[in-house]
C-alpha cells in the first residue's frame, strides 16, 4: 500500500460524492453524498499525515475536527428536513419550488 493507493481511493470517494450531490433528488441521498466528500478529505489527510508529514499532528487534528463538524452539520440538515417535511410533506428537492424568480 503506497500513498498513491490512498489518494486514488480518496479521489474516487470525492468524485462519487460529487456525482451523487448533482444527481440525487432526495435530500437524504444528497446528505449521504456530502458525507462521502467530507470523508474523502479525511482519507487524504490521514494518508498525507502518515506518508509525507509524519512529524506533526496537524493533519490528524484537522481530520478529527472535520468528523465532528460534519456530524453537527448533518444534525442541522436533518432538523431542517423535518421542518420542511412537516410543511410540504416531501423530501424530494424537485418539490421544493415555492421560491423562484
Amino acid at each position: 500500500m503506497t500513498l498513491a493507493h490512498y489518494l486514488t481511493v480518496a479521489a474516487l470517494l470525492f468524485l462519487i460524492g460529487l456525482f451523487g450531490v448533482l444527481t440525487r433528488r432526495n435530500v437524504i441521498g444528497i446528505l449521504m453524498s456530502i458525507e462521502l466528500m467530507f470523508n474523502a478529505a479525511n482519507v487524504n489527510l490521514a494518508a498525507f499525515d502518515r506518508f509525507l508529514h509524519p512529524e506533526g499532528v496537524a493533519g490528524t487534528t484537522l481530520a478529527l475536527l472535520i468528523i465532528t463538524v460534519a456530524a453537527a452539520e448533518v444534525v442541522v440538515g436533518l432538523a431542517l428536513l423535518m421542518a420542511i417535511h412537516r410543511n410540504l410533506g416531501t423530501a424530494y428537492v424537485e418539490d421544493f419550488n415555492l421560491l423562484k424568480g
Binding site: F38, N44, L62, L81, N87
Partner: peptide, 29 residues
C-alpha cells in the same frame, strides 16, 4: 414553508461547498 425551503437550499449548497473546500484543504496539507 418559504423559510423552510430557503434554509434547506442554503444548507445543501453550504454543506456542499464546505465539502469542496475541505477537500482543497486536505490537498493543501
Amino acid at each position: 414553508p418559504k423559510s423552510n425551503e430557503g434554509a434547506m437550499k442554503y444548507f445543501l449548497f453550504g454543506a456542499f461547498s464546505s465539502a469542496i473546500m475541505v477537500f482543497g484543504i486536505s490537498l493543501y496539507f
